[in-house]
Amino acid sequence: KKYKVVEVKENKDGTVELVVENENGEKKKITLSKEELDKLKAGDTVELK
């Protein structure tokens, strides 16, 4: 499934919390490390299994 990044929030521990949404409007929260996030920004599309 493809999800669009709608919100990006940095946590104090250096991880980043993303809120992503698919075309049905379903939202998910995922947490990434700073390194994983470096290639993402709001409006990008991510694929989740």
Rank of each mutant, 00 (worst) to 15 (best):
L48N: 07
K27S: 07
T15Q: 05
E47L: 05
V16W: 15
E10V: 07
L32Y: 12
G25M: 04
K39W: 06
V5S: 01
K29V: 12
L37Y: 12
E21N: 01
K41N: 06
D13F: 03
K27P: 05
L37P: 05
E23Q: 07
K28R: 14
K2E: 03
G25A: 03
G43I: 03
K27W: 14
V16D: 00
D13I: 02
K34G: 14
V20A: 03
K4F: 04
V46K: 02
E21W: 05
V19A: 03
V16H: 05
N24D: 12
T15L: 06
A42F: 06
T15K: 04
V8L: 09
E17M: 12
K49T: 15
L32F: 13
A42V: 15
V6H: 05
T31K: 08
S33D: 09
T45N: 06
E21G: 01
L48Q: 08
E36F: 14
V5Y: 02
E47T: 05
L32C: 10
K4R: 12
V46L: 14
N24T: 09
K12H: 11
D13V: 01
N11H: 09
K2N: 04
E35M: 13
K41I: 08
I30A: 02
V20I: 10
V8Y: 11
L37E: 03
V6C: 11
L48I: 15
D38R: 11
E17W: 14
D13Y: 03
D44N: 06
K28F: 15
L32K: 02
V19S: 07
K28E: 08
K39C: 12
D13W: 05
E17R: 05
T31G: 02
V19K: 03
G43A: 04
E35Q: 12
S33Y: 12
V16M: 11
E36L: 10
N11P: 02
N22P: 01
E47A: 02
K41R: 11
K4H: 02
T15E: 03
K12M: 09
E21I: 08
K41Q: 10
E47I: 11
E10G: 03
E7L: 09
L18C: 09
E47H: 12
K4A: 02
N11S: 06
G14K: 01
E23D: 08
A42N: 10
E17I: 09
T45R: 01
K4E: 01
E7Q: 09
V20R: 00
V20L: 08
E10R: 04
L18Y: 03
K27G: 03
V46S: 03
S33E: 07
T45F: 13
K1W: 09
E35A: 13
D38L: 13
E10C: 14
K34L: 13
G14F: 02
N22Y: 04
L40Y: 15
K29M: 14
E23F: 08
A42I: 15
E35V: 12
E21Q: 07
V46W: 03
E35T: 13
K9V: 11
K12L: 11
T45Y: 15
K41G: 06
N11V: 04
K28I: 14
V46R: 01
E35R: 14
V46I: 14
K49S: 15
E26C: 15
G43P: 02
N22Q: 03
L48T: 09
S33C: 15
D44L: 05
G43E: 04
V16G: 08
D13R: 02
E7F: 13
G14Q: 02
N24I: 09
V20C: 10
I30G: 01
E7R: 06
K4L: 06
V5A: 01
K1H: 07
E26T: 07
K49M: 14
K27I: 12
G14E: 01
T31F: 12
V20E: 00
T31P: 03
V5K: 00
L40R: 04
Y3C: 02
K2A: 05
K49A: 15
E47R: 06
V16N: 02
L48R: 06
L40G: 02
L32E: 00
K12Q: 11
K49N: 15
D38C: 15
E7T: 12
N24F: 13
L32R: 06
D44T: 03
T31V: 09
E26Y: 13
V6Y: 06
G25P: 00
